[in-house]
Design a binder for these strands. Structure first.
Length: 1032
RNA sequence: GCCCAGGUGGCGGAAUCGGUAGACGCGCUGGUCUCAAACACCAGUUCCUUCGGGAGUGCCGGUUCGACUCCGGCCCUGGGUACCA
């Protein structure tokens, strides 16, 4: 083999590993570049070709940056805690650490084969105690801090204690769980336990009773981003709402900063928008409404205080704390029934019943603070307890949900903004003047909002308020395979472990299931308590715990004293380029920004955003292949009918011939011949029953087995022809052979399939198909039931159908990178993944196209080697043409790399190689920079050639070539000449010609005369170096 | 429903400060080489055509000397989100 990629790739992968070529360290004299891939969860299935897409892209960037003189940090690791390993452990008893280790090993092998320049010395594995030591350590800081709204940062709990001692709860403005206010003396009078309970309302990591997403099947709670449509994202199991004591992280405290930070980072607008929606900021007002006959004031939240005169009723969440008190005796039974019904309903049912309006009247009335008119108070589940104040003023005229509710329960609809037909539907637009609003009539909406807010504040019944949809993240999981909390309980109150006792290592358990009394699996661990016998927390941390600060550990992964040293963090700062899938938009990418900001507040890290630039690589979809299994009988009848009907036998046949209370498949009336198709087994029986009666009526009966029609249609037709020829001849029948193997699977090539064959589309393993042609032998061996399959071919081949679908085992379209590397090499795989299309867009994988890039690499090899496969290179001075080919490629490729447009840079390389091959260029001055330019894309090939060229250091750190404009200047310009915008011909003009001269040359050229048709042009436009357009 | 991304040959895709639409590759067709096949190499390949040319970047309209690119309206596909007041 002239280009022996197997040998070359093995050699250089070994070289890089042995020499630790890509090991990174702090080098203050060099500029840094930190490029990171979202680390994978090592699943049992291994990598398919879709996974390394982003890794290859970041590898090209890393290699390019190294050659540009940057000190590059390009690490990889494993997000190793997770449900699949634990589910597997439950099924098999195998320790999840064991399977995880095996899976990691396999991932590592697969990644190594691709030639990725990772610094494996910096690798982290989240399930490694040396790693989760720091996850636990950060958790303790989260527990030991609270969020101060005045300085807008996290502060130590000790400061909060001091503030409470001095001025009670009024002394601070903190992000906290709502609770009764207390004075300094009340604080001083609290027991230690009560003080601890109170502090939990403020801690950033806190324990509380909250409504959680409980997944019975997984036996654990899930965060909002782990649930979709009432089902768990992992495993698709039903999820219900349940109140439980759980750890949470006060992410909501950071809502505004998480929102503001988005404006300072270079992420795709789509992801930023998703995060903005998830954070869900809305500005409005909280307003108190008196309750008629009660000494209560209900606080509502609204974004439309301008519509307060249209508030004709009030709605509370069914779980609202005052729902009971507000219920009158007459309504009590109805209210209780409704509250029970709502509580029982699962999240899933609730979503399924969206748009079904339900609710119940409490019997009480609130007073509209402006009109003092009583308005009924209802309970309805379209108002959520967890948002705003859990209560709204309903304005049916200007809110569609309120409108639907008012319609359903015949409540009044009063328009207060002109411009809509509010009897029919809600007018939700914020344009128009106020009506029915006393003093505020005539004001435009924005002005009215200001005016009413001011009035509300003046009346002392409310104030402007901003709300966020973003909820605190539930942080405990009732599972085994996760980070243990560094927490023990004393007198029922949580306490964190001292730092010197970290890491708290995950204990062994004999079974990975919950205990008999419903405790999490850690309830099975022996001695799961501290030295004093205080029990440890039984929950473990969720998946996102380990991935929220991993990018800091890479900076200083061996540091056993700190999360990250000041020095390492100060040098690497934050990730310059982060690449991963967009599915993490609302999970990982929010949580890690939150952790980062928290660590920033504590002065532990120097940047408040972790990922400067983010790219979402598109999914690689699978390309499935199909075979078409047909109904044997339908197929046999169809092909036979096609022949009989096309008159090849010279007689007219009828189909579905009705005779003597029976329907026969085909009949030639003229010759009184009936042809019947029958499955082999039943053919003899059919013959015995029908032959006699038909003969008596003067008909002859030819029974054909389906098998013989399928196998040899011509022989069948010959037999029929004989019978048509000779009136007297009796058909012969021998079903002995056919009857044995009735209905062998029959597959018809794609273009021969007809709907009347009743085809079934069957996914076939894509490795059995090449260029959409089926390997029949391999297919027969694929499945035992296809061993004796019959095929109807086109031109000797079976053509498969295809479709683009998700790459998945069940669709048999998974392509393994190892196989591609075995057949074509890692450099070809790398190049082809990039060539497929833009990094960010989804595109189907099609192994068929890979020959193109492989041939390209072969041509590169031949550029340097002669027919004897010996390096052949000379030191001749390149021609202008050769210089130009090289330098335009350098310019294009380097610009494309900056823009992450790798598909076009591969195309540019191909063009360059085609040109240089054409020119038979073997000049060192051209090929030496060329191979350096190519090296980030095809590093193995480049290293090998680089070494053969006589270089002793490896190409990975050779200087990147840069282009020189002087080689790109043109002496001649080719102008397309168009008439009325339609291009007609080209003229070649010296580059220095003026526009007037170009215009004259265009008009005077021979070809122009034909298009001018003697007319004088109205106008001639010359765009320098671009185009000439003649307007007639 | 709302938000985002995207609709270009048989396929993946290229070209957007408006300036030759279809680069590059696959596939296909023809040719050279070969006993033959594979490989390799060369030529062709948007569609229609009366071989003059005409049409063409989801659809309709607009701006312009000129529109895949800008503007208005609509359709379709993919993704996200869903009673957040």
């Amino acid at each position: 083999m002239e280009y022996d990629f197997r040998e070359i790739e093995k050699k250089w992968q070994r070289y890089w590993a042995n020499n630790k070529t890509f090991r990174s360290s702090v080098m203050p004299e060099k500029p840094k570049y930190y490029v990171l891939d979202m680390f994978p969860y090592p699943s049992g299935a291994g990598l398919h070709v879709g996974h390394p897409l982003g890794y290859i892209a970041t590898d090209i960037i890393s290699r390019q940056k190294r050659m540009e003189g940057f000190n590059v940090l390009h690490p990889m690791g494993f997000d190793a805690f997770g449900l699949p390993a634990e589910q597997y452990a439950i099924q098999t008893g195998q320790h999840p650490a064991k399977t995880t280790e095996i899976n990691i090993k396999r991932y590592r092998e697969q990644l190594d084969k691709i030639g990725l320049s990772f610094d494996w010395d910096a690798a982290v594995v989240t399930s490694d105690p040396d790693y989760y030591h720091w996850t636990q350590w950060v958790f303790i800081r989260l527990f030991e801090h609270w969020y101060d709204k005045k300085t807008d940062k996290a502060l130590p709990i000790q400061m909060l204690r001091e503030a409470f001692a001095q001025g009670g709860s009024q002394a601070v403005e903190a992000a906290c769980t709502p609770h009764e206010p207390f004075t300094a003396s009340e604080w001083a009078g609290m027991s230690d336990i009560d003080q601890q309970k109170t502090l939990l309302n403020y801690r950033i990591a806190y324990l509380s009773d909250t409504m959680v997403n409980w997944c019975e099947k997984l036996g654990t709670v899930l965060a909002n981003d782990e649930v979709k449509d009432g089902f768990s994202i992992r495993g698709n199991h039903p999820v219900v709402q349940k109140k439980m004591q759980q750890w949470s992280l006060r992410v909501s405290a950071y809502a505004q900063r998480l929102l503001d930070g988005l404006d300072r980072i270079d992420w795709s607008e789509a992801i930023k928008e998703t995060q903005r929606n998830w954070i869900g900021r809305s500005t409005g007002a909280e307003i108190l409404f008196d309750v008629h006959g009660h000494d209560l004031r209900i606080q509502i939240f609204t974004t439309r205080p301008d519509t307060i005169f249209g508030a004709t009723f009030m709605v509370l969440a069914p779980e609202h704390e005052w729902a009971q008190q507000l219920t009158t005796d007459a309504q009590r039974r109805a209210v209780e029934a409704y509250r029970e019904e709502v509580a029982k309903r699962t999240e899933r049912e609730r979503i399924a019943e969206t748009r079904r309006v339900t609710g119940v009247f409490t019997g009480s009335y609130a007073l509209n603070p402006f009109t003092r008119k009583p308005i009924p108070i209802w309970l309805a589940d379209y108002v959520l307890a967890g948002y705003g104040t859990g209560a709204i003023m309903a304005v049916p005229a200007h809110d569609s949900r309120d409108h639907a509710f008012a319609k359903a329960f015949q409540l009044p609809i009063v328009p207060v903004i002109e411009g809509g037909d509010t009897a029919a539907e809600a007018y939700e637009s914020k344009t128009g003047k106020l009506i029915n609003s006393q003093d505020f009539n005539g004001l435009e909406v924005p002005r009215a909002i200001e005016a009413i807010n001011a009035k509300v504040e003046q009346m002392g019944i409310g104030k402007a308020k901003t709300n966020y949809r973003l909820r605190d993240a539930i942080f405990s999981r009732q599972r085994y395979w996760g980070e243990p909390f560094p927490v023990f309980y004393k007198d029922g109150m949580p306490q964190t472990l001292p730092d010197d006792q970290l890491p708290l290592v995950l204990p062994e358990v004999e079974k990975y299931l919950p205990t008999e009394d419903g405790q999490p699996p850690l309830g099975r661990a022996r001695n799961w308590h501290d030295a004093q016998g205080n029990p440890y927390e039984l929950s473990t941390m969720p998946g996102f715990a380990g991935s929220s600060a991993y990018y800091f550990r890479y900076m200083d992964s061996k540091n056993s004293k700190e999360l990250v040293s000041k020095e390492a963090n100060g040098y690497w700062r934050s990730v310059d380029l982060y690449v991963g899938g967009s599915e993490h938009a609302t999970g990982h990418l929010i949580y890690s920004r939150f952790w980062n900001k928290f660590l920033f507040d504590l002065g532990l890290v120097c940047e408040d955003e972790p990922f400067k630039k983010l790219i979402n690589q598109g999914m690689i979809q699978g390309r499935s292949n199909f075979v078409y299994r047909v109904n044997n009988r339908k197929y046999a009848e169809a092909v036979l009918w096609e022949k009989l009907n096309s008159d090849v036998l010279g007689f007219k046949f009828k189909r579905d011939y009705n005779f003597d209370h029976a329907i026969y498949t085909f009949c030639c009336e003229e010759k009184k011949l009936i042809i019947e198709c029958s499955a082999g087994k039943t053919a003899q029986k059919f013959l015995d029953e029908h032959q006699g009666p038909l003969r008596r009526s003067g008909y002859r009966l030819l029974v054909l087995s389906i098998e013989e029609i399928v196998e040899d249609l011509d022989a069948v037709l010959r037999r029929a022809a004989v019978l048509l020829d000779d009136r007297e001849a009796l058909p012969e029948h021998d079903f002995s052979k056919a009857s044995k193997e009735a209905y062998l699977p029959l597959f018809v090539s794609k273009n021969l399939v007809r709907p009347e064959h009743q085809p079934m589309e069957i996914h076939v393993e894509v490795s059995l198909v090449r260029n959409d042609q089926l390997d029949l032998e391999a297919f027969r061996h694929w499945r035992i039931e296809y061993e004796k399959a019959l095929f109807v071919l086109e031109g000797g081949v079976y053509h498969c159908g295809w479709a683009v679908e998700k790459m998945s085992k069940s669709l048999h379209n998974v392509v393994n990178p190892d196989d591609i590397i075995e057949d074509f090499g890692a450099d070809t795989l790398r190049l082809y993944e990039m060539f497929l299309g833009p990094l960010q867009s989804s595109k189907p994988w099609d192994t068929n196209g890979i020959d193109g890039v492989h041939k390209f690499l072969l041509r590169v090899w031949r550029l340097f080697h002669n027919a004897q496969n010996k390096l052949e290179i000379n030191d001749d001075e390149p021609t202008a043409e050769e210089w130009k080919s090289l330098h335009k490629t350098i310019k294009k490729v380097r610009q494309d790399i900056e823009e992450l447009s790798f598909n076009t840079s591969v195309a540019a390389f191909m063009i360059c190689v085609n040109e240089l091959s054409q020119l038979k260029c073997r000049k060192r001055a051209i090929l030496d920079p060329f191979i350096r330019l190519l090296s980030p894309f095809a590093p193995h090939l480049a290293e090998e050639i680089w070494q053969r060229l006589g270089h002793r250091d490896c190409i990975a750190f050779a200087p990147a070539p840069s282009h020189d404009e002087k080689h790109l200047v043109e002496s001649q310009v080719e102008y397309p000449v168009s008439f009325n915008g339609k291009t007609r011909f080209l003229i070649v003009v010296p580059a220095q010609h003026s526009q007037e001269l170009v215009s004259e040359l265009a008009l005077s050229s021979d070809k122009a005369q034909k298009w001018l048709e003697g007319k004088t042009p109205k106008k001639v436009i010359v765009v320098p170096n671009r185009i000439v357009n003649i307007v007639l």
